[in-house]
Amino acid sequence: MSDDPQTPQPVPGPEARQWAMLCHFAAFLGLVIPFGNLLGPLIVWQIKKDLDPFVDAQGKEALNFQISVALAVMLCFLLMVVVVGFPLLMLVSIAALVLTIIAGIKANEGQAYRYPFAWRLVK
Rank of each mutant, 00 (worst) to 15 (best):
R114M: 08
A26Q: 07
F28A: 07
I43D: 00
V98Q: 12
E15T: 11
F28E: 04
A16L: 13
L121E: 01
L78P: 14
G85L: 06
P116K: 06
P41H: 08
H24K: 07
L78W: 06
M21L: 03
A107V: 04
W19F: 11
Q66N: 14
Q9A: 12
A62V: 08
L99F: 13
I94P: 13
L22Q: 07
I101M: 02
K60G: 03
N108F: 09
A62R: 04
M21S: 08
L39S: 06
A62G: 04
A118V: 08
T7D: 10
W45H: 15
L78R: 10
K49Y: 12
S68L: 04
C23W: 00
P12H: 01
P5K: 00
W45K: 13
E109V: 05
P34W: 03
K48V: 04
W45V: 03
A26P: 13
E15Q: 13
P41C: 00
F86Y: 14
G59F: 05
V98Y: 14
G13L: 10
V98L: 15
N64K: 11
A95T: 15
Q58R: 13
P41A: 00
S2F: 10
M21A: 12
P5C: 02
F86G: 03
A118I: 08
I67T: 03
L42S: 06
L99N: 02
P53D: 02
G110A: 08
M90W: 15
W119F: 14
